[in-house]
Write a protein that binds this DNA or RNA. Sequence first.
DNA 1: CGACTGGAAGTACAG
DNA 2: GTCTGTACTTCCAGT
Length: 943
Amino acid sequence: MPSTSFPVPSKFPLSSPAAVCGRGETLGPAPPAGGTMKSAEEEHYSYVSTNLSPGLPLPTAHPSLPAPCHDMQASAPGISAVAPAGHPSGYGAAVDGGPSGYFVSSGHGRPNGAQTLESPRIEITSYLGLHHHSSQFFHDVEVEDVLPSSARPPSTATLHLPSLEAYRDPSCLSPASSLSSRSCNSEASSYESSYSYPCASPQTSPWQSPCVSPKTTDPEEGFPRGLGACSLLGSPRHSPSTSPRTSITEESWLGARTSRPSSPNNKRKYGLNGRQLSCSPHHSPTLSPHSSPRVSVTDDTWLGNTTQYTSSAIVAAINALSTDSSLDLGEGVPIKARKTALDHSPSVALKVEPAGEDLGTTPPSSDFPPEEFPPFQHIRKGTFCDQYLSVPQHPYPWARPRSPTSYASPSLPALDWQLPSHSGPYELRIEVQPKSHHRAHYETEGSRGAVKASAGGHPSVQLHGYLESEPLTLQLFIGTADDRLLRPHAFYQVHRITGKTVSTTSHEAVLSSTKVLEIPLLPENSMRAIIDCAGILKLRNSDIELRKGETDIGRKNTRVRLVFRVHIPQPSGRTLSLQVASNPIECSQRSAQELPLVEKQSVASCPVLGGKRMVLSGHNFLQDSKVIFVEKAPDGHHIWEMEAKTDRDLCKPNSLVVEIPPFRNQRITSPVQVSFYVCNGKRKRSQCQPFTYLPANVPIIKTEPTDDYEPALTCGPMSQGLSPQPKPCCGQQLAPPPDPGACLPAGFSPCPQRSAMMSPPPSASPKLHDLSPAPYSKGMASPGHSPLGLQRPAGGVLAGPEMPRSVGVLPGSPQQPPPTLLQPQVSPQLSGRRPPGGQPALGPHSPSSAPPSGTQEPTCLQSRSPTRPPGMGHQQHQPPKVPEKESAAARPLPLPEVREDSNQGLAPTPVSVKREPQELDQLYLDDVNEIIRNDLSSTNTHS
DNA sequence: CGACTGGAAGTACAG
DNA sequence: GTCTGTACTTCCAGT
């Protein structure tokens, strides 16, 4: 099949594993690069169809990509085959796929998987599969199969879980969850995670079961899933073009969704009707992928109990770290947690948030052909819960495996996993960053064109260090740009642009309800791709929010990042997955016109004394624009706010010069992550940008403590170079860090440091190896890892989406580390890189910058601890720091004392701080959480 | 003619 | 419960 479908394959061989798997498209697809959109679409369709039926074939065909991945899993050959199988299994696979893929190398189970599918899981898989389509998923699936025993049970269990909805609903509804985009939501991720996890659960590492070959197994199933996904994506319908029409579909489904107004029903329609259909047949529609089980879970978990969540997450992470070992985690964790965890299993911790993603999955549907959706929906509803449930179980098992495996694993990581941007000799960089504003189009509108670069032209991405002659597939999807971990955006989907003006071949695939654009990376082009074929589609908030799993809210959640992934087959048979995220892109019409936007900052960190000048570049700056520095408590309260002096004379629409205000606490011993934003008036604020205050002097002290933490803190750095794990996390996202600034959406604030950190890291490429393992974890595993060794990961992971809160704790530790790193870095940053914006060095390259954002998340995680994520991070850090007390004081204060204090204070303070962090790290998240809480409460009290 | 765009009217929602 | 300001979607029209 694939082969047929893809004439292109040669070029696309890559078809990224995931993509490939997913959809026939991928596989094939890629129609010759050249193909115009239409053609492409057609191809997709054809592919899809083919894929579907042939399911297996595709995989096979794709072998190139898939194979690698798969290979990774088990034997190469098998892999390819497997992959297909995986798909089949599909759904599940998909789900797992992500994870599993990585984890598992081979499809051992696949064949089985297929069978497996039959079991309850199948349903799940289907969803996944559909969405995921990626081969990886398949792998996962396979794994599951293999694992069957363990996994399945879960699955079964899952099924039983009654009402996912309950979870979902709550979550969905719960605004809380919503905050940003649903973290969880991201369809892909969520689904994937959920599903995948489950599949993954197979924990068993897929690899282990190498054989799998059979992947073939479920081709059908797999296909369906995969296909589903792929097809969906790939299918013509999916075709970008579809989007607009999609609405129609939706309508049909929904009947009349009134768009916004629509009641919840609409949601349902959405989910149910639409999407699933197409998939359904094959997949088992039963599942609704999205169903979000995850979401619900996640949401619940998160929302419900941050604490628990954290704990569970932590546990998960730990487990992961610990390794495979055990699954225990799952056990320990509360059910809900499990669910969440489940997803993540591997990455569980990380994923937690992703859960939301599940939702995402669904949402995408809108875009997708109704047909497809419907099936999914069904699945979701009915199965969803089940799936989710199942997931948990699996996750645990899987998770462990995964962690170890890390990237390498055959299967592809779920879209919500945090991956490094560079590993070993490879580095995925965004050479040209996209413009900070791009008005997304609704389905009811025509396309608004491809995302462009700020300097004209289009964004470009290049894979450095790849010397093989095999082309690879670059995956592109729309990710979130909030402070939480990077994940597929529930309210936006990438839209494939075709036409005379488009020079880059691409085809759509759908993974976990997240549209993924697959673009060939050819050696002849230096593994560089110009992204002139990617537009951004906005899904109606009402449609997405109605989804069961959805927890994120769409209102004001209009910033996205382009997330690029590449899966590089390794000699070992594993697949190395790298990811980099672009700078945030504001997608609303209004925002683009009125809201100030900070794209870059010349400085990412500065001594507490302040006084340094920082140049901000961006948009919509006014002479009256104010730059406010804020330090937030874990609970989000502003511990300290300080307006920076701006140089009106130097103020330009695109640049603003500000004098960094002194930090409220001059004594800090470790870097403190704060954030700042540009305010043009009432509700016209830019997102928060991360910024780090460094101890006036002192760096050394921390060092000690830091080590442990540093990683975290350092994450930035680490991510890149240091610890493998961290790297992964940061890596992908982080790696970019260089630009942190860029990335930073508000949330990222932490990044600054990170970014700073990050930049250095870049050098650290080597990580991969380590990372690899971590990577996966990254999502989940890493967390685990981090937890273990470094906190970062944990932090990072945790931090991830939800984590933040819980994570908060971590941050503390990070802080210390940061110092170490920070200082050194700091200078640098300040001097050059730092330009948070990543401008200079990274600068334009946005590449780095992009990463930052992407990285950020990861970073955040990592950094959080260290840096603290903007929101959480700070909080976290603060708590540890104790600032709280200060905070109270601090708020008001700003400064003068600083110098002296700083010096003096530093020494003393540092010590304490450091200790905490360290302890925290190892201690346990729970403890940390408690601490944080205490701090917060104290803080609140003070405040 | 169709893809892009920029603008803006109308509606929904939050405070 | 009402009012007002925003934000979100959908339309229109020009290029």
